[in-house]
Design a protein around this nucleic acid. Structure first.
Ligand code: MN
Ligand code: MN
Ligand code: ZN
Ligand code: ZN
Lengths: 139, 139
DNA sequence: CTTGTATTTGCAACCAGTTTCAATAAAAAT
DNA sequence: ATTTTTATTGAAACTGGTTGCAAATACAAG
């Protein structure tokens, strides 16, 4: 529930510094209900702290991804969106014809995950995928 | 076997013009054994036809993708690679730790494909995927 | 072979994201 | 509280890829 604090403490536990920029980025991610983009995070922060740079936003998102605190998904908009990892795992089916997005529960990929682990010794990162294709009426 | 001709006739059947640029792009894709990038296609063409523009290469690749003649895959290099669709379907497991690439046969995703079709009325495009994750020694 | 027209191209500007580097500042040490 | 160390930042340049537009050209029709 108290998510930005959780993410912040994980950062400092791992030896990363808690700068004001990072804290603002964390709360922007956490306060957004839906998936948020780098632009949207930046716009929100620059309003209060005008000399923050967009590259700091990208660098922080990269770090949070690496630590597994946020997931990144390409929903085919020409930009990528972010989601706090703790807010639940799910996937999206994205129709290339009409742009429709169908949400998908996580367990659907569990058997694929097990197969890859068992037969290929590979642990796939299947936390927030977008699977491209065509919906019924577009195929 | 005579692949560039096949791709070319499909283009003109669909009403697209057979420009010298398009023909050179088609044969660059077909003559490459492995996956080829836009840069590599461009470099190969510009040697003989110096005023060809890179945006024509990107536009043609976009068209070939849309017509299903080539598949595109992001192998995590910061650039994307292309493959003629007829040269067989397969997938790649990409380790985010050490960069190892494990090849994967197509049938592994058949049951996922069926499930999505049956339960979600969605026909996924699973012709050439890269699945990110960690190999045994990196996880 | 010419003409007409719709498609395609080259070019330049643009967009999301990354990288290099010197200046800044968080946190550790004194 | 001051100094030192090291991570982090802002700024600017850069990368892969896309887009708007006017000039060029493939191809169909005469
Ligand atoms: Mn989501
Ligand atoms: Mn491949
Ligand atoms: Zn659709
Ligand atoms: Zn590995």
């Amino acid at each position: 529930m108290e998510q930005p604090r959780d993410m912040a403490s994980k950062l400092s536990e791992q030896g990363y510094r808690l700068t004001p920029q990072r804290l603002m980025i964390l709360s922007a991610i956490d306060n957004s209900d839906n998936h948020i983009s780098a632009d949207e995070i930046y716009a929100q922060i620059v309003a209060k702290y005008p000399n923050v740079n967009i590259s700091t936003v990208y660098r922080t998102l990269e770090l949070l991804k690496r630590l597994g605190l946020v997931t990144e998904t390409d929903l085919g908009e020409g930009r990528v969106r972010y989601h706090p990892a703790v807010k639940g795992h799910h996937h999206h089916l994205l129709c290339q014809g009409c742009g429709a997005i169908i949400d998908l529960d996580e367990p659907l990929l569990a058997s694929l995950k097990n197969t890859l682990l068992r037969e290929y010794n590979f642990l796939p990162d299947l936390r927030h995928l977008a699977i491209l294709g065509r919906c019924l009426k577009c195929s």
